[in-house]
């Protein structure tokens, strides 16, 4: 299961809220404006439990745009924007770590 949402949320560091877009399943992040972005660098970053719960509430209120929202840890990169902080999130940003089969097209 993706991370279960509980009202007590432990935040270890900077955190973003991510989900998959309903219509095509693409990975998206909640943006500071309360919409969704397909760039993690443009995601809203929360650093307290309250921040992230507020972001999650916004995300869960928009389940007709993006589904399965959950908090994901990030690092703040040299340019000041968030980057994925664990393997799962790196894979969600960059795609499978293995080459697609020879002959497979790069994108649908």
């Amino acid at each position: 299961m993706t991370s279960p949402l509980q009202r007590k949320l432990k935040i270890a560091g900077p955190t973003v809220v991510t989900a998959n877009r309903l219509a095509d399943g693409a990975v998206v992040w909640l943006s500071p404006a309360g919409g969704w972005t397909d760039s993690i660098g443009a995601a809203a970053v929360g650093s307290t439990s309250e921040d992230v719960l507020r972001l999650l509430d916004i995300a869960h209120g928009d389940e007709n745009t993006a589904v399965g929202a959950y908090p994901a840890p990030v690092r703040i990169g040299a340019d000041g924007t968030p980057e994925p902080a664990n393997l799962r999130e790196r894979i969600r940003v960059s795609g499978p770590t293995v080459a697609l089969p020879a002959g497979a097209s790069a994108a649908a």
Binding site: D24, G25, V27, I91, R92, G95, P96
Partner: peptide
């Protein structure tokens, strides 16, 4: 048969 996975359906 439709799942939602990491990157897509």
């Amino acid at each position: 048969g439709v799942y939602l996975q990491l990157h897509a359906y």
